[in-house]
């Protein structure tokens, strides 16, 4: 099973806090802008939920 992840890029301010919680999903590129993998294995769920919790802009969602 996989989960689908979506970041609302109109909200995201590239604070990068998600990177610490789910480093295999979220990263900042060379321009300090957020990039992410939109689909991940179920085993990432706890990490992605932690990333959702620490996002200052509350811009990360799991799409059902």
């Amino acid at each position: 099973m996989t989960i689908k992840i979506e970041v609302d890029m109109t909200k995201c301010q590239h604070y990068g806090q998600c990177v610490f919680e789910a480093p295999d999903i979220f990263r900042l590129n060379a321009d300090d802008k957020l990039e992410y993998t939109a689909e991940a294995d179920d085993s990432e769920l706890a990490n992605v939920e932690a990333a959702i919790d620490v996002c200052p802009m509350q811009a990360i969602f799991i799409v059902k």
Partner: peptide
């Protein structure tokens, strides 16, 4: 202010 990767 900005320079996120450096701060992190």
């Amino acid at each position: 202010i900005g320079m996120r990767t450096t701060v992190m």
